[in-house]
Computed example of a mutant assay.
Amino acid sequence: MITPLDIQNKEFKKSFRGYKAGEVDGFLDEIIMDYERIYKENIELKDKIGMLTDQIRQYNNLEDTLKNTLVVAQTTADEVTTSARHKAEVIIEDAELEGKKLIDSAREEVRNIKREYEYLKKEIFIFKTRYQSFIEAQLISLDEFYKGIENGDIHEKDKDHNDDELELFEDMVVDEINDMGA
């Protein structure tokens, strides 16, 4: 997996008709910030899943303990007087209800986490697809722009127009990224 540090340390070869280094560096800085945020968020979510898995394990242990307690309570209830049996049955019923409530609560929490996880996976896929489309559109636009320059079809006003379109598209992508983070 690529880390934010890998992006930051990536060096590109320079060529005669290469990209402007400042623009590429600026764009990579933006990618590093966004990727680092997503990278940290992913780590936090993994930690949260681990914590919830531990809680589920505790609830399962509690369920086993409750079952064992019920068996002991049943045996004890048979050995005591009628009033003692009645008290034991009340305790058992309360323990079963509480255990079911805890288990149901834990299961609901797991379902919620799974839904959130699936939603985040989908959002990451959407972001990747949009970002990939943006990059591809920019490459096509740049190819057309440079072909126009080579053919002598591009004038200064066309260059300004293409720059304005590029800035508008970049603003749309930044807004999209910011909306996903909100």
Rank of each mutant, 00 (worst) to 15 (best):
D163L: 14
P4F: 08
E79V: 05
G152T: 12
D175N: 15
E118H: 10
L142I: 14
M33H: 05
G50L: 05
L70T: 01
F145L: 15
R37Q: 07
K157H: 14
E165M: 12
V71F: 01
L97Y: 05
K20Y: 00
L166P: 02
D158N: 10
K114Y: 11
T81E: 11
E63T: 13
F134Y: 15
T129C: 09
L45M: 07
I31E: 04
K87I: 14
D25A: 13
L120I: 15
D158A: 10
D47A: 11
I56H: 00
K157Y: 15
E170I: 07
E136N: 00
I49F: 01
K114H: 13
E30C: 08
S83H: 06
A77V: 04
E170G: 02
Q8K: 10
R17E: 05
L66G: 01
A106N: 06
E123L: 15
I38D: 10
F127M: 07
L102K: 06
A182D: 14
L66K: 01
K159D: 07
K14T: 10
L52W: 00
E118Q: 13
D160T: 14
E96S: 02
I103N: 04
Q58N: 04
E36L: 08
I31R: 02
Y131Q: 03
R130H: 03
I103D: 05
N68F: 04
S133M: 03
Y39E: 02
P4V: 06
E96G: 00
K122N: 11
T82L: 15
Q132W: 14
Q132N: 09
G26T: 06
I32E: 09
G148S: 12
K121P: 04
G99T: 09
K46V: 12
Y19A: 12
I154F: 05
G99I: 10
I7W: 11
L166E: 09
E98A: 08
K46R: 10
K157N: 14
E41R: 06
Q8I: 08
K100R: 06
E30Q: 03
E108W: 00
N112Q: 12
E89W: 00
E109P: 04
K100P: 01
L97V: 13
V71Q: 05
N60E: 11
T3G: 03
Y39M: 01
K10N: 05
E167I: 14
D160Q: 11
V110P: 01
E109Y: 03
L120F: 06
V174L: 09
E156H: 04
K10W: 10
V72T: 04
A137N: 02
A88E: 04
L70R: 01
S141I: 09
F169A: 15
L62R: 07
R111C: 01
K147G: 10
K48F: 12
S83A: 11
I32W: 03
E144A: 11
K67Q: 06
V90G: 04
E116T: 12
N42A: 09
L5N: 05
T76S: 08
F16R: 02
K13L: 11
T3S: 14
K87W: 05
E156I: 15
K121W: 03
D175H: 07
D29M: 04
D94S: 08
D179V: 15
G50R: 06
A106E: 09
T65D: 04
Q55M: 08
